[in-house]
């Protein structure tokens, strides 16, 4: 083989290796969630989870069934149902990601759709509440994600983008009682 041919071949291989290293997905990609983007009022359906976010509210204090707590709070009203099976069909994953920080739906309200059981084909309605630091309400983007498993890897996630800074803050807001949506 001519010397220039060997050099060219070698260079081509190095470039090819570099290119493959660049396009190789990260390990996290292999277990990424399947995201279903939704808007307020849209029904989003993933694996065994169908969700309609019906409203988003901001309040200094949240209340339900005699429980009152200072926040501030971001309250998400929604309808949710299972699609295929009621086995392990609970809304166990509910997070709000803002500016690199992740918040988990609060376990504090005595009645909330968070971690509640869902029925196949018959939607339930209610609220989930996020207890947040004040500065989050000045942010322009927050991502709400809802899923069935506390570990959201490789499962569907219903995702909604919202703008916390545009929400009207009220003094006190009551969570919706959980119940059948219709």
């Amino acid at each position: 083989m001519r010397r220039w041919a060997a050099a060219l071949g070698g260079t081509a291989l190095v470039v090819a290796a570099w290119g493959i290293a660049l396009v190789t997905p990260e390990d996290a990609e292999a277990e990424r969630s399947f995201v279903v983007p939704v808007e307020i009022g849209d029904r989003g359906e993933g694996r065994n989870l169908a969700v309609t976010v019906t409203g988003i509210r901001a309040a200094d204090a949240a209340t339900i069934d005699g429980w009152v707590a200072e926040g501030p709070w971001l309250i998400v009203d929604l309808e949710a149902a299972a699609v295929q099976s009621e086995l392990r069909a609970q809304l166990s994953h509910a997070t709000l990601s803002v500016d690199g920080r992740t918040f988990r739906a609060s376990e504090r309200p005595p009645d909330s759709l968070f971690r509640s059981a869902l029925a196949v084909g018959v939607p339930r309605s209610g609220s989930i509440a996020f207890e947040l630091p004040e500065e989050v309400f000045g942010d322009d983007l927050a991502v709400l994600s809802l899923g069935l498993s506390a570990d959201p890897r490789l499962d569907s996630l219903i995702e909604l983008h919202l703008e916390p800074s545009s929400l009207d803050r009220v003094e006190e807001a009551e969570l919706m009682s959980s119940g059948w949506a219709r």
Binding site: F103, R108, L132, P133
Partner: peptide
Amino acid sequence: RYDDTTANPWLQPGV
């Protein structure tokens, strides 16, 4: 929690 006695509460960032 001291205020509403929630057992084993989660601590949210910055709260």
